[in-house]
Amino acid sequence: MTPALLRRLLQLLPTLLLLVTLTFLMLHAAPGGPFDDERALPAATRAAIEAQYRLDQPLWQQYQHYIGQLLRGDLGPSYQYPDRSVADLIGAGLPLSALLGGLAMLLALVCGLMLGAMAALKPHGARDHLLMLFAVTGLSIPNFVLAPLLILLMAVTLQWLPAGGWSGDPSQLVLPVLALALPQIATIARLTRAALLDVLQTPWIRTARAKGLSERQIIWRHALRPVMLPVISYLGPAAAGTLTGSVVIEQIFGLPGIGRYFVLAAMNRDYGVVLGVVLLYGVLIVVFNLLVDLLHAALDPRVRL
């Protein structure tokens, strides 16, 4: 591992620590504990349960304990399902969420780049205007609005695709992936178009033309990298957006992923699970941003970490 990379990794620590602390404090400052609903609980039993979860200890001790636990890679127990650990619950939802998010990002990247390039190669024509109108419309339809509309059209009216649920059938993922990817497709297409138009006007593309290279060579050899750079930079925010979107998308399509657990756990004040999921998302976003930076440095010879 290079010293530069190590430094970048160390820079992640304040973000993660802030994240853990904020979440922890927020949960504990909230009015009402996790066992408030069970009023009938005898005081002794209640005290025993609270002791088991260390709710009787001073806040900073609970905090210390939690941090220590995290450092050991233990996310702690679920408050709602005492027999299951948070890691268990997250592990159960992760594959589906990862599949959904990964497919959506992949689709967004491929379609976004293609549509953006199509618009930029014949700028200011009818095709360009149509594609960009489509893109700005895509940006303007939130995925939680698009999802029910897609269900209404494709599942209820046309009955081409299932409306939701998850039994391992790939067709059940088509609509969720589409709903999740569309705003990202729109953003990436706009970014690609702007970057490609920009690059094609540079003096070094003129040099490439003066060398007699074909348009195909100019695009693939000379324009692709600089066009990829802003798109790659956007992948960090795109990952965050996809994670956020997956919460509602999983809810709407009834997919048993992490996002759905998160909403359920939050409703039930299941501190452990909520903290675990927020932490997981935070780490994912932070790590994704790091990867994006690394990729950026790999593609741009002028950038050093």
Binding site: T202, P203, W204, R206, T207, A208, R209, A210, K211, G212, L213, Q217, R221, H222, R225, P226, L299, D300, P301, R302
Partner: peptide, 29 residues
């Protein structure tokens, strides 16, 4: 272009592709 007529432009800072090695930019001709 490039084969029978060569062209040199004004600004050497920006007339080379900053993302590609010199060798590749020469060799591709």
């Amino acid at each position: 272009r490039g084969a029978r007529i060569g062209t040199v432009f004004q600004d050497p800072m920006s007339s080379l592709n900053p993302y590609r090695r010199i060798g590749m930019q020469l060799a591709e001709v």
